[in-house]
């Protein structure tokens, strides 16, 4: 498995957690819990952005593995 595909996997799993967080933000009744989950969602978003930027560089460096 190439580095690019490993990074891709991590991005996918982080995107999955983002979805679950969104569900809990809508269905929780407690304001404090909701704000903690919202913070976590924002943090996850920035991490995903960073990783996606890195993924672009990796795919540029090893174009033969693009799409794996």
């Amino acid at each position: 498995m190439t580095v690019a595909s490993q990074v891709k996997q991590t991005i996918a799993s982080l995107k999955g957690t983002r979805g679950t967080l969104r569900v809990y933000i809508t269905q929780t009744r407690d304001d404090e819990t909701r704000s903690v989950f919202t913070d976590a969602l924002n943090e996850t978003n920035t991490i995903i952005e960073d990783l996606e930027k890195r993924l672009q560089v990796l795919e540029f460096e090893e174009p033969q593995y693009k799409g794996n």
Partner: peptide, 8 residues
Amino acid sequence: LYAAFEKS
């Protein structure tokens, strides 16, 4: 969810 964060 916690486990997924831990793995990442």
